[in-house]
Write a protein that binds this DNA or RNA. Structure first.
Lengths: 183, 183
DNA sequence: AAGAAATGTTAAATATAATTTACAAAAATG
DNA sequence: CATTTTTGTAAATTATATTTAACATTTCTT
């Protein structure tokens, strides 16, 4: 009942050049189960889907990671093509905003003096990294606090509470990236 | 029963700061289902797992790729912590080089005048994006050619043949990101 | 402190997935 | 060409997932 995981399984199985019964044998489910899944008559439990994929072998992550589109898209992004997805004293200029199925966000960030993402700390999925290009940025990650200056970088897991603060008296510029895309 | 998808769901749900009931409401399954899944008492069908994840939202691919590592790792990378993974007239200073299981590369690139990735064009897996912070960069992507200057950006699929060239008479600086990680 | 609202868990009922068994069509074998 | 083997599919049974409804606990209000 979900997406077309049935046809997808069929494609994958064919790639491995196995019949339903051969795969059934290697994976420990019955051939009928494989038939039902491939025809989208059932939505397999992840345990049985995993069994099936183990027989190929292929991981669940691989299975669900589908091919990216092949459409010709915009490549160059001048400043006016970089929408500001920030707010207040923080400007996030997003590169590649209009692209389909982006896997990351690259941002040209401008933080006015005193800009602060806030005491409540940010916390979200994914990971992020960047480089300070100008100014003085105080970066808090979990228990750690540090002021970074031009040329210095950072990389951390976004699940860890974090906070950016422009502690200099001029504007600060950061180029950052995060994946998966959050804007 | 497959792997510990229960605890994983719980972690993810907590990251989104939702209760079982809140998530149940957003996703269209009952809170009991979420409880049973999180305690590994059942192996959900992929259709219901997808419903649940849609409520967060998170894709199946992300969910199964999600690393539950929570190890404390290096966060700050001063210039001397950024190994130069480039060569010749091109310097690639890698942020987060020593991190385990990175999903992307963030690079502070310095291209000396005349630097050129070469006529044979680069081509590889993944996608890449960046911002020009200084200088004049001619970027070729497929059939397209263009000179980018300070503040301008790019984003393209790395399967498409591409080439970077510093066409100015001073050094150029780019901050770039690519995923999945290639260095 | 008492009541209300929200939290996660569980038992029984219901809905759905998986197996067993069987069938028909295609491919392989003699 | 006839027979055997292999293929994918389907019906009925069994096993499992999901819902409904209830239960304790904790957290928030007043």
């Amino acid at each position: 009942m979900t997406i077309e995981i049935g046809p997808r399984l069929k494609t994958v199985r064919k790639n491995f050049q196995l019949s339903q019964r051969e795969l059934a044998k290697k994976s420990g489910v019955t051939n009928a189960t494989i038939s039902l899944i491939e025809k989208n008559k059932v939505s397999p439990s992840v345990s049985s889907l995993k069994k099936v994929l183990d027989g190929l072998p292929m991981s669940l992550a691989e299975f669900f990671t589908f091919e990216s589109e092949e459409i010709s898209e915009q490549v160059y992004y001048k400043q006016s093509d970089q929408p500001d997805v920030g707010s207040g004293e923080i400007h996030f200029h997003l590169i590649g905003a209009n692209r389909f199925n982006r896997k990351m966000c690259v941002l040209r960030e401008i933080l006015l003096p005193g800009a602060d993402t806030g005491e409540e700390m940010l916390q979200h999925d994914g990971e992020e990294s960047g480089v300070i290009m100008k100014g003085q940025i105080e970066l808090t990650v979990g228990e750690k606090v540090r002021v970074l200056t031009e040329g210095e970088g950072y990389y951390f897991d976004s699940h860890i509470p974090h906070r950016f603060r422009n502690v200099g008296d001029e504007e600060a510029i950061i180029v950052s990236a995060n994946t998966p895309a959050s804007f």
